[in-house]
């Protein structure tokens, strides 16, 4: 029997890697970005841009791929002050969506995180593993979104497809 999930390969998003002290980032890009999430492994959003707090002094800004050039023009990675770093990394991450009633069952096969909603809430986002590969994991409407290094995209799609097939009876 198959798990009751929908697996969707979403491909690339516009993603910018932001590093530095929160105040320095706010000074440079505060107007173009949603408020910086304060708590580790949480996110904020606004104006079509989402901000993920994925490490100490480390954030990802994500938007639909169509917004990439606009966002780059606003963030001006080439001109930013030396105490912060802004790097376009859109090409490095391939995104997947796993949604439906059994989404958490399939995620439990792929990922060692405790994804119960009391632990991994609606605004949670973190780097973890998917089939042993470093992966970004977050909640989305009706399930989970994950992203892996894009060169692993085909392989992870195969793994996820196989995982969806093998519901124990």
């Amino acid at each position: 029997m198959r798990y009751d999930v929908t697996l969707q390969r979403c491909g690339l998003s516009a993603v910018f890697d932001l590093k530095g002290a929160a105040d320095a980032l706010r000074n440079w890009a505060g107007d173009m970005l949603p408020p910086l999430p304060d708590h580790p492994n949480t996110r904020t959003g606004g104006g079509g841009v989402e901000l993920y707090h994925i490490g100490r002094k480390h954030w990802l800004a994500r938007a639909p791929l169509a917004q990439e050039e606009v966002l780059e023009a606003q963030l001006k990675p080439d001109a930013c002050p030396a105490e912060i770093s802004i790097v376009r990394v859109s090409d490095t991450l391939s995104f997947f969506r796993i949604t439906g009633p059994d989404a958490s069952q399939v995620m439990a096969i792929a990922c060692p995180l405790d994804l119960h909603e009391t632990v991994f809430g609606a605004d949670a986002v973190t780097y973890s593993e998917l089939f042993g590969l470093k992966a970004l994991v977050l909640r989305c409407e009706g399930g989970f979104e994950c992203a892996v290094e894009q060169s692993f995209g085909d392989m992870v799609e195969d793994y996820l497809t196989l995982s969806c097939r093998q519901k124990p009876v």
Binding site: P40, N41, I54, G55, R56, H58, T126, Y127, S128, E129, L133, K134, A135
Partner: peptide
């Protein structure tokens, strides 16, 4: 024994 660990497939700490 005191050990170093790297959260490599996580936040990088």
């Amino acid at each position: 024994v005191q050990e170093h660990w790297w959260h490599a497939r996580g936040c990088g700490e």
